[in-house]
Amino acid sequence: MSRPILNNLRYKTMLKLSHLSPCRGVCLPLALLFSLVLFGCDNRGVDDFPVLGEVTRDFSFVNQDNEVVTPVVFQDKVYVTDFFFTTCPSICPIMTRQMTRVYEAVKDEPGVLLLSHTIDPEHDTVEVLKNYADGLGIETAKWHMVTGPQDEIFAMAKHYMLAAMKYEEAPGGYLHSGSFVLVDRERQIRGYYDGTDSEAVDRLIEDLALFREP
């Protein structure tokens, strides 16, 4: 919807400028450059994001404050979700840093929530998650860190089309995806982002700004 309007605007601006002959040589290229900067790269709308999947599975987990977390919590919200565990030595600490960047970016946006699942519920009890969240200094209402039956958590990872499994040889004993998943208000998956890559997470933060508008 928004793209045609912007293109139209750009067209009109160029037309008008080309009538001002004295400044044509300098202004026109400048105006072109300007309109490119203004509209060229930034005219994406949510319609440009294909629907990659639908979150239809029900779940019931418990967060760091011992509150039950079900899909109801995410009703009419855009959310970002991932799978991690607190003692993971390899990629999780980097994912946590990156998710903290997302947290800082959406802290004051009521329409966006974060949901991190531990894949090691045996170690990551509510108390351990609480302690971890306190170490990060985050608010539960914005960033839910949940635990629950391991097979349920693995099933949920699979539902988001992410890998998560026990694997003795991996550092920490688990193999799992480092992706962040963007889920829109209609529970549709709209993006996967490498949670260990700060540039991918820059993009996620930009995309969230598009999706959080009602």
Partner: peptide, 18 residues
């Protein structure tokens, strides 16, 4: 390889976590 993911490349740590 083994320490910086948590403690930071320059040993700077992270919040009250690392």
């Amino acid at each position: 390889e083994h320490c910086s993911s948590c403690h930071g490349a320059a040993g700077e740590g992270f919040r009250s976590l690392y």
